[in-house]
Simulated scan of single mutants.
Amino acid sequence: MARISYTTVSPLTHSLNVTKRWTTSLGIWGVGAGAAALLFLSVTPLVRREVLVKVPVLKLYYEDTTPASDKPF
């Protein structure tokens, strides 16, 4: 017959276990939400100029090379 052994778990250990379980999931959802926000806001001139142009890999794609004489405003 199996014996059941109950041990006490300190509150600190319990909170660390819960934190470890949720950190990965919340991190993945946070990265996904941030990427979606940048995707939807990439057409906004402020986001394009202040955020996306300053990322080294994305700079060439989002940089505006249109001469000033060809812009309507």
Rank of each mutant, 00 (worst) to 15 (best):
S10I: 00
L41I: 09
V9A: 02
S25N: 09
H14L: 09
P11V: 03
Y62R: 06
T24L: 11
S69M: 12
G34N: 13
T19A: 11
Y61G: 02
R49Y: 03
T23C: 04
T24W: 13
T23N: 09
N17I: 03
K20W: 03
P11Y: 00
P56Y: 03
L16F: 04
V47S: 01
T13C: 00
L52D: 08
F40Q: 10
R21M: 11
A33T: 11
S69P: 02
L38Q: 06
Y61H: 05
T23D: 10
V55R: 00
V9L: 05
T66Y: 08
L12G: 00
S25K: 10
V55A: 10
R48A: 07
E63Q: 14
K20R: 06
K54C: 02
S15V: 05
S69N: 12
P11S: 01
K59Q: 14
A37E: 07
Y61Q: 06
G34M: 15
T13I: 00
G34S: 14
Y62M: 10
E50R: 06
V9I: 01
G34V: 12
T13N: 04
N17P: 01
Y62A: 12
A68Y: 12
T19H: 06
T65V: 14
P45H: 04
F40I: 12
Y61W: 09
A36M: 12
V9E: 06
K54N: 09
P67I: 13
E50H: 04
W29H: 13
A36L: 15
R48D: 06
V43F: 07
T66N: 08
V47M: 03
G27H: 14
L58C: 08
A37S: 12
Y62G: 09
P56E: 05
G30D: 10
P11H: 00
L41M: 13
L60A: 10
H14N: 02
L46S: 08
I28G: 07
A37M: 12
I28C: 08
V55Q: 05
L16V: 00
S42G: 05
V9M: 05
D64N: 15
K59N: 12
A35Q: 06
L12M: 00
T66I: 14
V53H: 01
I28W: 11
W29N: 13
L39N: 04
V57R: 06
S25Q: 10
L26P: 01
G32M: 13
P45L: 05
N17C: 04
